[in-house]
């Protein structure tokens, strides 16, 4: 091997710790701002339909990633609040990697009228979940909404 003076005792192996406070602001953008305001003020979920390819983006976007078309105000339309469950998972670890006492349920939901899916919380199911079943967005009360994707509290199976 290339090293001639290897450590031979675990107690000789030391570490240094380092950390960094990382705080950012993220601009929601023209489309993001409009989408989040509609969610907060109207309790409505909006998508944008690309006039070139017909794909409906939820959350709404300013441009189509498939053909680089600008998605102007005329392309905005509400979607949902019901949709089809595309996939689901019970997540047993938190962001620190610690095991949870009860799983956090998440799903991919294709809202009615959307081409894309939305990842969000699922209400803890009382029965079996299956792909294709209808679920509906449950919004937080208007006075608790802040203009965040979490203004949707969760999706519940119908």
């Amino acid at each position: 091997m290339s090293l001639l003076n290897n450590l031979e005792h675990p107690t000789d192996a030391r570490i240094w710790r380092g950390d960094l406070p990382v705080y950012h602001r993220y601009t929601a953008g023209v489309a993001g701002e409009k989408f989040l305001r509609a969610l907060k003020d109207q309790g409505a979920v909006y998508g944008t339909r690309c006039p070139t390819c017909g794909y409906v983006y939820v959350p709404a976007r300013l441009y189509c990633e498939r053909d680089a078309t600008h998605l102007d105000d005329s392309t905005w339309a509400p979607v949902g609040p019901a949709g089809a469950l595309v996939s689901f998972s019970a997540v047993w670890v938190d962001l620190d990697g610690k095991r949870l006492d009860a799983p956090q349920w998440v799903g991919l939901v294709r809202l009615k009228g959307a081409s894309s899916v939305l990842m969000h919380y699922l209400q803890t199911p009382t029965g079996a979940l299956h792909a294709g079943m209808t679920v509906q967005a449950v919004l937080k009360p208007a006075n608790e909404r802040v203009g965040s994707i979490t203004d949707i509290a969760y999706f519940k199976p119908l």
Binding site: S89, V91, Q104, M119, Y121, A131, I149, T150
Partner: peptide, 20 residues
Amino acid sequence: TFERPLAINPVALAGLEMQR
């Protein structure tokens, strides 16, 4: 804006894709 606020461990993405 749309994904991180859920604060879900990203292994969820693997669970969702595998289930799919």
